[in-house]
Design a protein around this nucleic acid. Structure first.
Lengths: 229, 229
DNA sequence: CGATTGCTTGACCCCCATCAATCCTCGTGG
DNA sequence: CCACGAGGATTGATGGGGGTCAAGCAATCG
């Protein structure tokens, strides 16, 4: 079992605010796990009772709409925390998390983290800050969903993926493999619509597609499209 | 100047977790204000540096989309706090707040509140909980915006308004007066579309309209529509 | 190598954004 | 008290975006 106090990942999130002693204690009660692509971390209705720390890999966080389609609410990657909401709420999860590729994760039980929440102000403030950022991002998504066309949203999403999973080098593909269905589920449209728009972008040399690999060729033009031609 | 420790409104939000002493101090540095319908509390880009506590009235919180239309992100009413995000972020506001009717508000400067955030654990946890609830609600809105038709969203919105501003009595109108444009801006559609659907609902006896007054006549059927016929 | 799953493209049609014209409402000033 | 103007509300007409069904194609897997 690896030790939290030696894990570089903690520096990427609020756990970095914990003291050495706190980390040692957390290390003693956490559990590590490997999750294969496609496996489910938790589902809507599950009692989570803890926080996941993503050591490696990416997972999608989804919510089922009442008309039966799954919407991807966000992507969670290496270094992110998952399930912070369970710390301050007794309710069951309203979201589902599914591995998009092979993952390595740690799970920290709620009671242990809550103890630190109440004693370590820096930690609490850091969690608050993360939530504030999430709220702001959620607001942005709401506005985009409500006001922008599917084409704009796709351009926006590609840029966002490029910022998070892209490299400086335009000749390298995004470091994430999403199915067409996943992409459609991010922008909130039918799979066929997403596919059609992707091919249109490809035809215009804005992106290049090779299987599931995505190359962003012209971010500037995409930005232009995302903001409404 | 009224005193916070005697204000009933504080019991409706996280400020209720503050001790008597803390409230007295807050009371000394807060400022109270009346805001007329249509006036702006703050705009995108403003430095807020504090929290608004809504003593009376309702305001809309909006964000401008890059294609130039304003989207209502949420409605804030009596008892709610506004601007919590400014407490943990140095950034300027990404949102705009406009009074929907005449309001009475208090403003508490950031430094004073942050002091309590760091010393009073109950208060901090309460703020965390409120943010967690906001996040959950935001997720729901995202899914609805992404997956549901305008008709479904309108039904959903009417139900939501009914829960928040309605009474048990079906013969009474909602206790909030929104323009058609506001309604359209909540569900993210053109004003004309919202109007058309409202008249359709009225024709089907699901609601009744009288000027800006809205009567919810058949919540059950609306629920049915919101979930997809 | 079948067979299942995911990808792609075509055809069709409905929802909804947009433009335009009219009606209504309310505040203002004569 | 009424007239008038301005902004909001309503309804009609129209075109395009995008959802859906369907069929063909590629890829992955036992």
């Amino acid at each position: 079992m690896n030790k939290c106090e030696q894990c570089i990942v903690r520096k990427l999130n609020s756990l970095g605010e914990l003291t050495k002693d706190e980390l040692v204690r957390i290390s003693g009660c956490k559990s590590s796990d490997f999750v294969k692509k496609g496996e489910i971390l938790f589902e809507e209705g599950d009692h989570i009772n803890g926080v996941f720390c993503i050591k490696d890999g990416v997972c999608k966080v989804t919510k089922m709409s009442s008309n039966g389609r799954e919407q991807i609410v966000k992507l969670v990657k290496k270094g992110d925390l998952l399930g912070e909401r369970s710390l301050v709420s007794e309710e069951v999860s309203n979201l589902k998390a599914t591995a998009i590729n092979d993952m390595e994760i740690c799970f920290i039980p709620k009671e242990e983290i809550v103890r630190d929440l109440k004693s370590n102000t820096n930690f609490t403030m850091s969690i608050l800050k993360e939530m504030a950022v999430s709220l702001k991002e959620a607001d942005n998504v709401i506005v985009d969903m409500a006001q922008k066309t599917v084409k704009q949203r796709l351009a926006e999403t590609l840029l966002h993926l490029n910022k998070t999973y892209g490299s400086e080098d335009l000749d390298k593909p995004l470091d994430i493999q999403l199915s067409r269905e996943d992409i459609a589920s991010i922008i909130g449209t039918a799979t066929e619509s997403a596919i059609r728009l992707l091919s249109a972008f490809k035809k215009e040399k804005l992106i290049h597609l090779k299987g599931k690999e995505i190359y962003i060729l012209n971010p500037k033009k995409l930005q232009h499209i995302a903001e409404g031609f």
